[in-house]
Amino acid sequence: MSERVSVPIEMVQSWRYSSGDSMERFSNGIRHKRIEAVKCGNCQRRYLPPRPVCGNCHLSLTEWVPVSDVGTLEAWTVVYLPFLDGRTGELRDGPYGMGLIRLDGSDTTLNHFLNQNDPAKLAVGMRMRIVWRDELHGAMDDILHFEEVS
């Protein structure tokens, strides 16, 4: 094969996203460590993240219900492979624990980091609690990670 040329290009882009009303209310809540889900009046499903319409019933979601900062670990992993975080351009090194946690009061799960990265110490069904950051700014990374309820 004759010589081939390959060209490096770094994509750096900025975006500006609108949350919509329901996510705005949610975000304002977590600034005060208050978590709220929306509930479908038809199927009774309580949704996180909050959203304007139930995807199953196609009905508007207007009822807000309180959600605990404690929940159940429904699924978990420990990631070893370093991950290039597109938000920063930096590598997120492993191992780090991740989980899907069903907070009490919600019917969906949320995925987040766990403070535990030893597979031997993680199990489906464990009770987990949110650990908040010291400074809250109304975004999901106000949650530092989840820890086991002792």
Partner: peptide, 19 residues
């Protein structure tokens, strides 16, 4: 607004479900 800060691509998604 929801999970971009923690997303770990396909690998993380599958691994979570496998447990």
């Amino acid at each position: 607004f929801w999970d971009r800060a923690v997303a770990s691509g396909a690998l993380g998604n599958f691994a979570l479900s496998i447990s």
